[in-house]
Design a protein around this nucleic acid. Structure first.
Lengths: 342, 342
DNA sequence: TTTAGCACTCATAATCATAGAGTGCTAATA
DNA sequence: TATTAGCACTCTATGATTATGAGTGCTAAA
């Protein structure tokens, strides 16, 4: 359909626009070294590219700007993956050099570093917990009225919740309860826990322990944690540097979305395995209309557990960002697999 | 020094400017109902107020704008506290209606609600932990190589950290260690813990346990948590609605500061007891040059443990915000005192 | 002491002209 | 037949010019 020359022109237009954020004219193009033909030829090809919907004009006599269809074609067919340079590789590896033991820190650091490397906004979603298995349960009384329920998972994640003790609970009841729970629930995954608690355990408790209800419900609530561990967003203010967000209304729209976790979960809550690029309206979100989102999943062993993402303007440095995100996601997979499967 | 009439004029100028964000002229003022004298009189008084530094002119023939000195005088002497209306009281009380047991949620909700009520940015700093006392220590082995150290504090706060087990650690050593730590450290406050660990405990461990070092250092690091529990910022995007931050450079400056915890800690890390108002340059921070900060402390019992703050433009609704912040801080004090001291 | 009157200042908005980047089309060229 | 030079045309961005009007300071009268 498109001639090689037209593809070259499309590619150069997009490359230039990504760099300059300015509409690209035939004259500018003809001066590029990779382009050997005249501006008139370019104009003819541009007219055709426009007719086919790959580029558009902001107004009658201006240069051309890529359309979403154009970006899509560019990402799918014209992109040559950019090799990361030494510094970039080093920087990403530095995330994992010291203790990976604090997952929260790793997630946070990943988001920060990724946003610094790209100058866009980075989102890192910590591993899902739903397949984690209970390692140990514990109740620690704080005083006459309150106690704290603790669940330790096999990945080392700890959930806890304060709850009110029924009046005159005696210590031995608490101990009995903890014993029953540990006997029955160690090894059970978080996703099965709630059911198990209310189907198998509740009868046992009723038989052996008076006033088990509030302790049980504290455990049940502790268990009902959001399925993802932690969410970090790095480089929110990088958005301010993008010329397309000079417009305060656009800015407000996207900022509002980023500032509430819910919006972000909707955006990258369940991304497919591997790299994905969503351009503008493909994101099905009014706030994201002028943005592109590049996501990558990471895994523990074979199982996908989390995701990282870069949010930037449609005019994004796709090839560089894709390489970075890809690299980091593999690094995270390696590090986490290493940590949990050995 | 200032006549009553001048004070009235100053007050009305500031009130009007807070509402409109526009320089206030003598004509506008003379039409206010509380002002009974002519615009010429006002002009004379304004000239004097300007000479004394309470107001200033953006340019020769414009209306007047309050200076920082003017705001300061206004806050110190001209403010009549604004009664909260029913809805505001209800909304704030709603923070504490259901389970206060999850402190993190309470802090988060406070920040959100405060920002919604004020339309400014709200910051809530969770309670300090340094005077919390150890309630229980625990080590849970996850597999041959890793274990998790857990510290439960008397307020119900739980800290935990993954650490690497020395090769061939046997279970009984871990149990011995846990016993020693619990015997010696329960009741010790977090601020004394580090010292105690390395002065008293280390000798005991050396005598009874082989390979105690890494377990000890895991505990020590778990203990070295930031002294404040949690920090939440609500309504960051409210800044975008303030006309003074149309300027992208100003916006970037303040956004950058808000987006890093460190900047916020520097700002409200140690605020005095009670309400404090810092106006513009009084904050000693370039980013805050065009902002005011209203802070209030809250306590458990008699002891101040945390702070809440509102960050807005210098042109802030001081009286309303002060009332809101005051009210919320007392509510928090009540709720927390009730929770921990009963 | 207060106020009316008036000349003066300056920011803002509106209008207009110009330059220049870019286009599409036509006709000449390889 | 495909490419390119040439040219008229379009539209934005820029700057200059000009009104408009809100607001001031000063003077003189009340």
């Amino acid at each position: 359909m498109l001639t090689d020359r037209q593809l070259l022109i499309l590619q150069v237009i997009i490359d230039d626009f990504i760099r300059s954020a300015q509409p690209v004219g035939s004259r500018t193009l003809s001066e590029k070294e990779e382009i050997t033909f005249s501006s008139a030829t370019i104009r003819n090809d541009m007219a055709e590219l426009e007719e086919l919907g790959y580029i558009e004009k902001p107004h009658t006599s201006s240069g051309r700007v890529p359309s979403e269809k154009g970006y899509r074609y560019y990402v799918d067919h014209l992109l040559h993956p950019k090799e990361l340079n030494h510094r970039e590789v080093e920087t990403i590896n530095s995330i994992f050099v010291d203790r990976i033991y604090e997952l929260e820190k790793v997630v946070q650091k990943s988001a920060r570093i990724l946003s610094e490397l790209t100058n866009y906004t980075a989102i890192v979603l910590g591993p899902e917990l739903k397949d984690n298995k209970v390692k140990k349960l514990q109740i620690v009384p704080l005083d006459k009225n309150k106690a704290i329920a603790i669940i330790v998972l096999d990945t080392g994640h700890v959930e806890n919740r304060l709850f009110k003790l029924p009046k005159q609970t005696n210590i031995s009841d608490i101990e009995k309860m903890v014993n029953i729970l540990n006997e029955r629930l160690v090894g059970v995954s978080l996703s099965e826990l709630h059911d198990k608690l209310y189907k198998e355990i509740v009868g046992l408790l009723r038989r052996h322990i008076s006033n088990y209800e509030s302790m049980l419900s504290a455990f049940a609530e502790t268990v009902d944690v959001p399925t993802n561990e932690k969410l970090f967003v790095g480089g929110k203010t990088n958005i301010l540097n993008q010329p397309e967000f000079r417009d305060l209304d656009k800015l407000r729209l996207i900022m509002n979305m980023i500032d509430q976790e819910e919006g972000i979960y909707r955006l990258i809550g369940n991304v497919p395995t591997g790299i994905q690029v969503k351009i503008g309206k493909e994101n099905k979100s009014a706030a994201m209309e002028h943005c592109s989102l590049i996501t990558a999943s990471y895994s523990v062993g074979e199982e996908q557990v989390g995701a990282i993402a870069i949010l930037g303007p449609k005019r994004m440095e796709y090839s560089r960002v894709i390489s970075l995100v890809d690299f980091l996601s593999h690094d995270m997979t390696k590090a986490l697999t290493n940590l949990y499967k050995s």
